[in-house]
Design a protein around this nucleic acid. Structure first.
Lengths: 348, 348
DNA sequence: GAGCACGCGGCAATCGGTTGCGAGACCGAA
DNA sequence: TTCGGTCTCGCAACCGATTGCCGCGTGCTC
């Protein structure tokens, strides 16, 4: 079937070549700033004019086939619905677009195909690199990328063996800030709601909590329970276990804001008030944490900056295959709000 | 430079063909379920085995060049950081992946290139379709897609001329729910914080508010002020104007939860209590709105479902170029929480 | 037994840019 | 005038998969 002449066929480089009276290869060189010097200046200018006139739009796809570079970067998220990933994603795309990359987002959230399937899908699109936010501590996905030879960095979570670069928050330091704050207020019996131990943040924050407890001058009692997931429900459930096992605690440090909000639910359910009966500290300082009741004291992580850093690491790795693998650690800071207070005198 | 033999070159269809002892085209047919019947069953099976053995992964990119279908869909968001877009995006990707599409996300948030630039970038990647969440009421972007002949649907916001399909919430109905609720509680003087009038939600919700006011049996006083953006700050500012212009109001209906939260800020600043002095109703029912203080009464929109619907419309449009353009309206429902109450007797 | 239809699979063109290589033009120097 | 060098551009292969077309062989029918 002959192409209907009325339907506007997309303009190709050949159309431009014809109008400019040159060969397609010359057009290609003139259009690419990097190779433009290979073409006489005035000719290049007239080619640009021809392209402009026709409204030529380059086709990355075709170029990719030849160059091997797709200008696409895959981002694998554990769950878009989790509010912390929005700013991370934002930071990633913001940085990548500076180098001309677009981002393909794959969400491994509930109801989605397996992360491995999603990863293969991204690779099938020939992404030039990958940002993984899903990495559990030892992650088969990383290995898969490595053997396929596609550049990869981690964000928010690191892996046990540091095979690839990662941008993370200093979780040890974050927990130290939280514990210091509580101890400064007079708390001596502190509980921790840990994240899933399979996730690097879960483990590191637990370790950070324990280290922070040990580092205090005053002897403390500490307790911890792991949540099965980073969700409000899991937080409430773990908080229930924690309060049952150690009813004497006067403060709870949660590994995550959602867990902290779950702790709110558990406290309310048991008729306990925050901060009068129990202080609560979160982690991440998600948006709106200043508006919940009570406003949540939380360890603030600059997620947007973290996304940018991850993208930066990836760009370096994509530019040079032998770029050193690094771990960028962002320093968190504590934002004190209404959910923490000194324990009541009789609680001491 | 000869390719180093140690570096594992990606497996192509030719490698599979060689191992299976057939031509590449036969491999292509055997691998594609749609064309598999053109190959003898046992041969197809042995080709599949060969592909399996080599760990062959198809290359969408190359296929796209020939077929003209990239299996990529572009999603243009006004601002990833806005929490309502996370579930929308989630719904979109979830639906699209069922048909094998991946999504390229472009964020037109602050600091990003212009939406037009982003759109051109997406088109350069030869996306098979586009979901626009950025559409202002009359949108040049839509025209651009139309003239480039790329399928496009809108989500969350519709355009004045219904040139393309859209999935939106029934904003008129949402405002009616909000006003009915307040009137039922006894409110007679109601203020509205409208969204930017350039956005379809801003305008439609304002109209919906006005219509809902008119439709009441009892005569009401109403007032409204437009916010300059959908943000907490703009909400606080507009609420300030509203309270200055009409101090007698006993309730505020905001076009958006963030605006409602801004209203909280403005009330607090003026020493007014919610709901005792002024009731507040939001719109969207974002996550965590049950945890802010006071818990926000809000018009709930199923954003995830909306995303799915938009994707569904796009899939239909991509399958058949002549698919009818439709507008899918999701029915919102009111979630009553602590931010609304009957006005005090002396306020009547 | 000859002819025909059909199932199957190979050949080669194709998608739209990119790039190694070489040809031709032009200039300056010997 | 000739030769070498440089600058500019065209030619054609190439990236990897898809697909229209054709030929071969088998089996069926008359």
């Amino acid at each position: 079937m002959p192409r209907s002449p009325s339907k506007t066929r997309p303009i190709t480089i050949k159309d431009v070549a014809q109008l400019a009276g040159v060969h397609a290869s010359t057009v290609s060189r003139a259009l690419n700033p990097a190779t433009r010097s290979m073409v006489a200046q005035d000719l290049a200018a007239s080619i640009l004019r021809a392209a402009q006139k026709l409204g030529y739009q380059p086709d990355h796809l075709a170029a990719s086939l030849r160059t091997g570079r797709s200008l696409l970067v895959g981002v694998l998220l554990p769950d878009i619905a989790n509010p912390v990933f929005a700013p991370i994603l934002s930071g990633i795309t913001e940085r990548l677009i500076e180098d001309g990359y677009s981002t393909i987002v794959a969400d491994a959230g509930p109801g989605a195909p397996s992360a491995t399937t999603l990863l293969d899908g991204l690779i099938a699109h020939r992404v030039d690199g990958l940002v993984l936010a899903t990495a559990t501590r030892d992650d088969a996905l990383v290995g898969r990328c490595l053997e396929r030879n596609v550049p990869v960095v981690l964000v928010n979570r690191a892996e046990a063996q540091a095979r690839v670069s990662a941008a993370v928050s200093d979780d040890m330091r974050g927990m130290q800030l939280a514990v210091d704050h509580l101890v400064g207020l007079g708390h001596r019996r502190i509980g921790h709601i840990a994240g899933p131990p399979t996730l690097s943040t879960g483990l590191l924050r637990l370790r950070g909590f324990e280290a922070a407890i040990r580092d205090q001058d005053t002897p403390l009692e500490s307790f911890s329970q792991s949540a099965t997931a980073y969700s409000r429900e899991a937080g409430a459930e773990a908080a229930g276990r924690l309060l049952a096992a150690a009813p004497q605690i006067t403060a709870i440090v949660a590994a995550n804001d959602l867990l902290a909000l779950g702790a709110y639910d558990a406290l309310r359910e048991r008729g306990l008030r925050c901060p009068e009966d129990i202080s609560v500290v979160g982690h991440n300082d998600m948006p709106l944490m200043d508006l919940v009741a009570p406003a949540l004291t939380s360890v603030r992580i600059e997620h947007r900056a973290m996304g940018r850093e991850a993208a930066e690491l990836l760009v370096q790795r994509m530019r040079r295959a032998d770029a050193s693998t690094r771990m960028v650690m962002l320093t968190p800071r504590l934002v004190v709000r209404g959910s923490t207070a000194a324990p009541r005198p009789e609680q001491r």
